[in-house]
């Protein structure tokens, strides 16, 4: 099943016949099976699916962190599969933002320094007004001089979100951004992500297994066995949960396909 391309918005990122295979012969595992999908500009897309469905692999390939076996992963018009490490690194630095589940910050740098890190690495000056608005959006103005170990988990993740947004990337990728947070902090972080999409026009792609988190998105893409099996626009937590329950009943999860979830 492939997703329909919305006509009203240009896509910020696209997967075209994206395939990822691990191993050969008996140990051959297809993590992504010829996925074609578009992620619209200025929208918050959640990727969901049972364990081993390939959702993390999809994100890693789209974000240039993993290399596809075949097919294309495009950011704007740039096909990541054609880039060498140097160009890929530059693209990540200049056009992409990342929020990971854990270990998101450099412990030796202050919150502010962590936020401006990608721009500092690039040797670019951050846009002061934008930076201020990002910082005030995530509500960290009074914590900027603190080091990560002086911040709570939620605060750390908000710093990570601010870092992802600060450079105005084309797409922000978030891999289980609330996985390590309690529900209140998680909700905070998710609403920042949502506000950045709706107020700043950011494109956002979030991998999550939490229906509550998916409810913050504009659109949910469901994966199972490396294929897109369904999608949902303007989801609610209940609808997402309902949809996920059907995976459990059908037993769609294949044990051998757990690759990419944990490593």
């Amino acid at each position: 099943m492939s997703s329909t391309l919305p006509t009203d918005r240009a896509s910020a990122a696209r997967a075209v016949d994206l395939t990822k295979v691990y191993g050969t012969g008996d140990t051959r595992v297809v993590a992504l099976d010829s996925i074609t999908c578009a992620f619209e500009q200025g929208r918050f897309t959640a990727i969901m699916g049972p364990s081993g469905s390939g959702k993390s692999t999809l994100m890693h390939c789209m974000a240039g962190l993993d290399t596809a076996t075949s097919g294309s992963a495009l950011i704007g018009d740039v096909d990541l599969t054609t880039l060498d490490d140097k160009r890929l690194t530059r693209l990540r630095r200049d056009s992409l933002g990342f929020v990971f589940q854990a270990y998101n910050l450099v412990p030796t740098l202050t919150a502010l320094e962590n936020i401006t890190l990608p721009m500092d690495i690039a040797g670019r000056r951050p846009d002061k007004d934008w930076l201020d608005s990002v910082i005030s959006t995530v509500g960290l103005a009074d914590r900027l001089d603190h080091r990560p170990n002086e911040l709570s988990g939620g605060q750390q993740q908000r710093v990570a979100v601010a870092r992802a947004l600060a450079a105005r990337p084309a797409v922000v990728f978030a891999d289980e951004p609330t996985g390590n947070l309690d529900s209140r902090s998680g909700a905070e972080v998710l609403s920042f992500l949502r506000r950045s999409v709706h107020e700043m026009g950011q494109t956002m792609m979030v991998v999550t297994h939490d229906p509550a988190a998916a409810a913050y998105s504009d659109r949910v893409v469901f994966l199972a066995d490396g294929r897109i099996v369904d999608e949902m626009v303007d989801p609610t937590a209940e609808l997402v949960l309902e949809r996920l329950k059907r995976f459990d009943v059908s037993g769609a999860s294949v044990p051998g396909a757990r690759v990419g979830e944990d490593a």
Partner: peptide, 14 residues
């Protein structure tokens, strides 16, 4: 390892 991975992910070149 993870910190280095993070730095590489956010755009530090080799």
């Amino acid at each position: 390892t993870r910190e280095i991975g993070l730095l590489r992910a956010v755009g530090m070149s080799r």
